[in-house]
Write a protein that binds this DNA or RNA. Structure first.
Lengths: 378, 378
DNA sequence: GGCAAGATGATAGACGTCTTTCAAAAAAAG
DNA sequence: CTTTTTTTGAAAGACGTCTATCATCTTGCC
């Protein structure tokens, strides 16, 4: 309504050329004299023309075809990522966005490449994948991009690959934040911080550890850092390495676990004798296990990468690229710090899946009100 | 492409009625026999029809007309909110969303009502405003909604008004989080927490204070809570009330400021003698002042309501209502905890994005250049 | 049986873009 | 100059929905 926005016809009139010529320019069809191109570009700038994406998509009866490739397995974080994607998938259909969710063995570069090939053959506009430090993957990514497919890395970047963007947190910052939190919690007294990682060869783990170490040594000189426990993200290993430490030395005042396999850590913590001082415990990512531990006071804080935000950003980014708009890289994702009090509600949403879609007469907006209130007010 | 989604014509065919009848049903035009309505609804369900919003908007050459009404004045938080909205406004034009940003004197219910009337006369689809506890505002909101205008409250709710949704944080949770953080920072020792509020009559201030009190008294019995300072959000008042406290008693171990006027607090903190133990300081909302204080170690943590998220959610919500879709209330907004380490970059984004964005051959997506956005001949 | 009211069908134009086709004009090459 | 090539114009159909108009077919009712 009021004040319609300029269309391509307006641009054509302004540039003194035909619609066809404008179309050739904006859609890169070639065969246009330089001076015409210039006139069209000027007209676009002067009028502030913005292509009507809705109309464009409609005309092509375009459905965006995106894919997300997520490692399978028992990792709770990735399971959660899948669940979020699945919920999004359904809502997205209303916007003509078709999202394929593919599972794949973790850290298997070859399998990833095969899957990417398969997707490319099927026809696809963009893909998000969990990056690995792997040459053949980097080459495959370059190949896809050359074929006009947008590629994002999610959660973990692919160092040397020419992906369109990395959507995820800065893991060093996450580690620094953990360090700060742990330092603060000592209230000026000394102590000893025990770090637990899955593997030092995993870039995200290494970065988190390094970030924590940086902050603690720089700002809290009274804190010592104990030798790093390497638990391969497997709870039995973590448990067996941890138990003797807590039995023999009672000077651990804080634990920072950067990766998975926290079930073992939690078992050890729960088994601590009541008279022993409980350490401050900080870990990563809200999953059912860590959530429950935080709620019950077994741990003190969770640093979360907010997978919902990552996914939302990734999809926006894919869409922008597919629409040939400047990719709208939203605010960088920062690790969020959660305590028991500000822990987000379990499933994020989809508790009751919007049943009523307009039984009423009122014409304006059926049923929406009560539901919104309920969800927001919690 | 591949496998097109069902259209209204498909629904008509399936239901064994004409397109016109389907249209009457889905657009609530009335005059349709019950059994036909039922058949259409069934067909929609069976086919999994989802209305093509792009096509619908196109057909109406619809531009969404939304407005945001933000208090003016020197309040840094609201200035920031305006800046974020302004940045959004421009990006939104590409989606045919026209956002008016209106300024208005803070807490002036009558002025707010007048402005709302004016907007309603101009014609508008939805409005977001900062709620106040005010009867005439509540009535005006009811009026607007009856006229089919979506109304959201932002940042602060309007208790008795029938708004479509409240988009903002739960202030009690924010206070509880502050309490937890302060408690943790004492590392088991005792202490004395000094709360500073603007006014106890402001619901958000009162709730935050109450939340903090709850958590501290329940979980950290060694902590005392000093008498509340009421500073009317004005830095001179805060300073004058605070200075004697810090001069006379040296037992304040933490400060929790729930509102504005923090310049006074910061001055007092900076003036503390070096030999005096600095208290743990937690305040609300990242603004230039608080950011700088956090960076310089004058304060320890900021609890932020993430205005960008609030705005993004508000706009999504307005759009969903305008599209007559189930409002897509994203995850509830939780207060975020920031330390120096995970403080988000100043302007929210646009600092550098991702440099590796393909200087390469590409040919696919011509970067749309700078342009002045302007409307055509009314 | 006839008549009004109600329900349904058929159809067409609009929205802004993409795509294609065909003809015409302008520029470059011979 | 003609011939070829490059550049431009004109137009029409498609996408899925909304809106409107007018004609027709069912009802119920007296």
């Amino acid at each position: 309504m009021q004040g319609r926005l300029p269309t391509l016809s307006d641009v054509a009139r302004r540039a003194g050329v035909s619609y066809a010529t404008v179309d050739r320019v904006v859609n890169d069809r070639g065969g246009v004299a330089d001076k015409s191109v210039k006139r069209v570009r000027e007209a676009i700038d002067e009028l502030g023309y913005v292509r009507n994406v809705a109309a464009a998509n409609l005309s092509q009866s375009r459905t965006y075809r995106f894919a997300a490739i997520i490692p399978t397995g028992t990792n709770q974080f990735f399971q959660q990522l899948r669940a979020i994607l699945e919920a999004e998938r359904i809502r997205l259909l209303a916007d003509r966005i078709n999202l394929r969710i593919e599972g794949i063995a973790a850290f298997d570069g070859e399998a990833l490449c095969e899957r990417l090939d398969m997707l490319a053959r099927t026809g696809i506009d963009g893909v998000a994948l969990v990056g690995t430090d792997d040459d053949i993957v980097a080459r495959k990514i370059a190949e896809l991009r050359a074929a006009g497919i947008a590629v994002l890395t999610l959660v973990s970047d692919a160092p040397n690959a020419p992906r369109d963007a990395y959507i995820g947190i800065d893991n060093r910052v996450a580690g620094q934040t953990a360090g700060r939190l742990i330092g603060l919690c000592h209230g000026g007294s000394g102590g000893r911080v025990l770090p637990i990682v899955g593997a030092l060869s995993a870039p995200d783990h290494a970065e988190r550890l390094e970030g924590m170490r940086e902050t603690v040594t720089a700002l809290y000189p009274d804190l010592a850092i104990a030798p790093v426990i390497i638990g391969r993200d497997e709870h039995e290993i973590v448990e067996s390495k941890l138990r003797p430490i807590f039995e023999n030395s009672h000077d651990i005042t804080a634990v920072y676990s950067v990766g998975g396999g926290n079930a073992g850590l939690l078992r050890v913590l729960r088994a601590l004798p009541a008279d022993q001082n409980r350490p401050i415990v900080v870990l990563h990512d809200i999953v059912p296990q860590s959530r429950e531990a935080l709620e019950n006071g077994v741990i003190d804080a969770i640093i979360d990468q907010r997978p919902e935000v990552e996914i939302a950003n990734a999809l926006n980014c894919l869409r922008s690229i597919a629409d040939r708009r400047p990719p709208d890289v939203a605010d960088p994702i920062l690790p969020a710090v959660y305590f028991k009090e500000n822990l987000p509600p379990p499933q994020g949403r989809e508790t009751d899946a919007h049943p009523a879609d307009a039984p009423s007469s009122d014409g304006a907006r059926p049923a929406s009100k009560s539901r919104v209130l309920k969800e927001i007010d919690q």
